[in-house]
Each structure stands twice: as structure tokens, then as C-alpha cells.
Design a protein around this nucleic acid. Sequence first.
DNA 1: TAAACCATGTAACCCGTTACATGATTAT
DNA 2: ATAATCATGTAACGGGTTACATGGTTTA
Lengths: 178, 178
Amino acid sequence: MKYILLGLIAQRERSGYEIKKLFASEVGDFWYSNHSQIYPELLRMERAYLISSYVETVGTKLEKKLYCITAQGRTALASWMKEPLGDLAPSRDEFTMKFYFVSDAKDPLAQQFFEEDIVRHKIRLRYLEERLQTLTLEGRTSHYGHLLILRCAIRREHERLAWLKEEYGNLPKESRMR
Amino acid sequence: MKYILLGLIAQRERSGYEIKKLFASEVGDFWYSNHSQIYPELLRMERAYLISSYVETVGTKLEKKLYCITAQGRTALASWMKEPLGDLAPSRDEFTMKFYFVSDAKDPLAQQFFEEDIVRHKIRLRYLEERLQTLTLEGRTSHYGHLLILRCAIRREHERLAWLKEEYGNLPKESRMR
DNA sequence: TAAACCATGTAACCCGTTACATGATTAT
DNA sequence: ATAATCATGTAACGGGTTACATGGTTTA
């Protein structure tokens, strides 16, 4: 988490609120957080000399705290990026775990799970495709990684849906009928 | 988490230690936990009348606490199973988030990330295939769901590796050379 | 002038992880 | 004997979520 904030601030100076909005939009596609975690973390990072801040006044009273990365912060970010990836964690997915308890294909729950999962993955796929479209049209430069992970996610959703439909089709008739 | 424990105890009566071992083996492929979370959770569930326990003595002194599901517990489990699946949570994957900060395909980090991710997914794929083999050979009955989610995971790993290799091959030459 | 948005924090709680702690039984 | 495994707990800590709390600015 710390490094995500650091990475975002490394791109350009940012306020806590700006970062909050990023988590609610593009960063949120891959990682989620909210302001009550962001603000304290930024304060901790400042105390650790990874970032520095200055205050800008909007209007006459409203204060906006802008954070910049420090040299130390850049070093820390670079060494995190170079660190090898950790072990793959188990998925902890609700669909998976619930299905583990379905011992028989005839169980009507199997059908229900497939239907529900197809719906939520269709929604997600549509959303991701729209995001890719937006990003492509914006024609921003230097967002290789962002495009890449979006394409990865879209492909994963396609594959997931294909698998779901295949297995759904393989269910015994007794459970597909009404 | 609570419902996973409940599901495992619903299959047959089990001790905390037995459940711990399940998390270290087959359940651990999809969800992880350890004994310091399991034991207190079992105590809480017993206090909530979802499970009941009795003590069995092994040898002369060693005590083993066996938990059974109660009628209330079965109801709670069934209603959890029927509940619709929650929203898809963002992946929170290290590879994804690090790549978000790679703005240019020429960055040598891109190459590094692909290589590392290929390695860890190959390892995982091999492991999952071995698990499926074992499970198939065991020839247990009524494990439709378990087989299904294993096949799903294997297919996901295959697809992931295919994507990784494809994108790795698309990297510009400057960064692939030594 | 009211709603929507900008802007920043704290507090309580829940869940999960690591570490601490103990002792019995079985297999080599 | 001693190592591995069986067996069950507690404590401290860290990260994330929800709720609490406040006030300024912009837009319709």
C-alpha cells in the first residue's frame, strides 16, 4: 500500500484527496483503498522522509496539502520495484470456496453459482472494456503498464466466462430444468 | 471464514487440528488460515450454537476436541450458500500494481516482471496439475465442486502463462537484449 | 440557497498474521 | 533418546473497513 502511494506521488505531486479519487477510479480497478487509510499513511510516510508536503490555499480558507516524493522516497520505490514478486496467495474467492462444498453436480446450487458468476463477470468485462476504450481514446503517452494490465484483466474475464459457460453447459439436465 | 469452518464441520465432525491440516493441504489451495485463527473462531462458533463439541482422549492425557455442526449451524450454512455472491473485489496483485508504474515497454523492469511472473505461475500450474492428478487417482466420490475449482484454477494458470509469454514476446528488442 | 463536490482528519472495530507458550504421543 | 507429529490455546501487532467529525467551495 505504502508503495502504491509512493508510486502515485512519484508520477507528480498529489494531494490526499487526489489520490483518494484515483483509488475510486483507475487505480481502483486493481487495488482499493479509502481516505481514512490514505491520509494517516501519507502522514506516516512524511514522518519517514519518503515524501514532503506543502500547503496550498484554495479560495480564502480551504487548505490542500500537496505531497512530493523525496530522494529517499525514490530510492525506496525503486528498490521495491526491483524486489522479486512474493509467492502467489490463494485466491480467497467466494465462488471458489462455496463451490468446494458442492459435492454433486445435481445440486441446484451449482446452477445458481454459475448463473451468478456469469452475471458478475459479464458486468466486470463490460466495465473493463469501456475503461480500455476510454484510455485508448484519451491517447495519453507513457501508460504502457496501465494498458497492459487492463488487457490482461479483459482477457482473464473472457476466459473466465468461456469456462463458466462451458461448465454450465455440462451440468446434468436434472439441475438445469425448472 | 466462519462459513468455511462450518462447511468443513458439516462434512463430518472434525477437530481444530484436523481443520488446520486441511488449510495446509487441499483447502489451502483456495483459502489460507492458521491455527491461531481457527481455534478462537471455533470457540466463538460454539458459543453461538453453530457447532457443539466433545472431548476425546488419545492415549492417557492428550485431549482432542471434536466439533459437530448443530441444526442451527446447518441452517446458517445453507443460508450462506444461498446468498448471492458479493461484488468482485479488485485483484490486489503485486504484479499488476507494479506494472501500473511501468510507463514504457523499454523499461528493463517490464522484462523482469514477466520473467518472474512466468516462473511463479509455472510453479503454481505444476502444483495444481499434481493436485488434480492425486485427487483423480484417489477416486473419491462426491467431490464435484473440488474437481471443478481445481480445473478452473488450472485453466486460469494456462491462460495466464499464454498471455505472459505473448506479451513478453512483444517487448521491444532493446529491453530483451543483454 | 441547496446540492454536489473539495478537502482532511480521527476513532472504533474486525480480521488476519506472527510470535509466544505448553505439553503428549508416535515413529525412528 | 530424540525428532516429528499431534494437539490446543493466548498475545501482540498490523492493515483495512466503517463510522464519526468538520468545514470550505462551486455549480445549478
